[in-house]
Amino acid sequence: MIRPLLAGVACVALLAACTQEQSPEAVDKVQDAAAGPVGQTSAVTMGSNMVSAYIPNAAMGDMYEIQAADIALQRSQNAQLKELATMIKTDHTAASNAMKGMLPQAAPGTTAPTALDQRRQGLIDNLRSASAENFDRTWIDQQIAAHNEALTLHRGFADQDSPLAAHARSVVPKIEAHLRQAEAIKAAM
């Protein structure tokens, strides 16, 4: 838990230095790098321990994945990347719908968020502004970080005393498959 926090602090310090001296795309890259440890820390500390944190994190994770997949399907020319984006969109849409369907019984009075938080919106903005030559690498790096965060969140919550724990367990194999495929694509780049 300390490593992600320290990495996040280091990335934020790097971000501060880069914002004054680098191109906008370099700044975006540092922002993306900082988002991973911040998300991991959030998943470990709150999301995997409290229903009130699990629901918004799982919902926003799915929303981010769906939006990022849509952008990849529009911008990428890489067939493997587009195949992964299609799988991600399908699986995260199904996961989102399943969780929303469980909320009335599992967490009465709770609704899933309908918009991304600032961190995930920043990732989407960085995808949209990535140059054509850097898009695929930017997308795949974001996917690896996002799926590691999602695994931490869902694996951690899977043992909780909540009806949503079954949902957390059910999505882990698909997230693992997405991560393996993203890592294989990155290795081939």
Rank of each mutant, 00 (worst) to 15 (best):
M1H: 15
I2D: 15
I2G: 14
R3V: 12
L5S: 14
L5V: 09
V9I: 14
C11E: 13
V12R: 04
V12M: 09
A16V: 11
C18S: 13
Q20F: 11
Q20C: 11
E21F: 12
Q22N: 10
Q22A: 15
A26I: 08
A26V: 12
K29C: 14
D32N: 14
A35N: 11
P37L: 01
P37R: 13
V38A: 14
G39V: 04
Q40I: 09
T45A: 11
M46V: 15
G47C: 05
S48F: 01
N49P: 01
N49S: 15
N49Q: 15
N49L: 11
S52Q: 13
S52M: 10
Y54A: 02
Y54F: 12
I55M: 06
I55R: 10
P56Y: 12
P56Q: 07
N57Q: 13
A58E: 01
A59I: 05
D62C: 15
E65S: 08
I66F: 02
D70R: 15
D70C: 05
I71Y: 01
I71A: 06
L73V: 02
S76P: 07
S76V: 12
S76H: 02
S76E: 00
Q80M: 13
K82G: 07
E83P: 12
E83V: 15
E83G: 11
E83H: 07
E83D: 10
T86K: 07
M87R: 15
T90S: 09
D91M: 07
H92F: 06
A95Y: 02
S96H: 05
M102Q: 12
P104M: 08
Q105T: 12
Q105P: 03
G109P: 05
G109D: 00
T111M: 07
L116V: 06
D117P: 00
R119A: 15
R120P: 06
Q121I: 06
Q121D: 06
G122R: 00
L123R: 09
L127Q: 01
L127W: 00
L127V: 09
S131Y: 05
S131H: 13
A132N: 13
A132Q: 15
A132W: 08
E133F: 03
N134F: 04
D136S: 07
D136E: 00
R137E: 05
R137G: 12
Q142P: 06
Q143F: 04
I144R: 14
I144C: 06
A145C: 07
A150F: 03
A150D: 05
A150S: 08
H154V: 01
H154S: 02
R155Y: 03
G156T: 02
F157K: 02
F157A: 05
F157V: 03
A158R: 10
A158P: 06
D159C: 02
Q160W: 02
Q160C: 09
D161W: 01
P163Y: 04
L164G: 05
L164F: 02
A165H: 00
A165P: 02
A166T: 15
H167P: 08
R169M: 00
S170W: 08
V171Q: 09
P173Y: 03
P173H: 03
K174H: 08
I175M: 04
I175E: 01
L179S: 06
R180W: 03
Q181R: 14
E183S: 03
I185G: 04
K186C: 00
A187E: 07
A187D: 01
A188Q: 10
A188K: 13
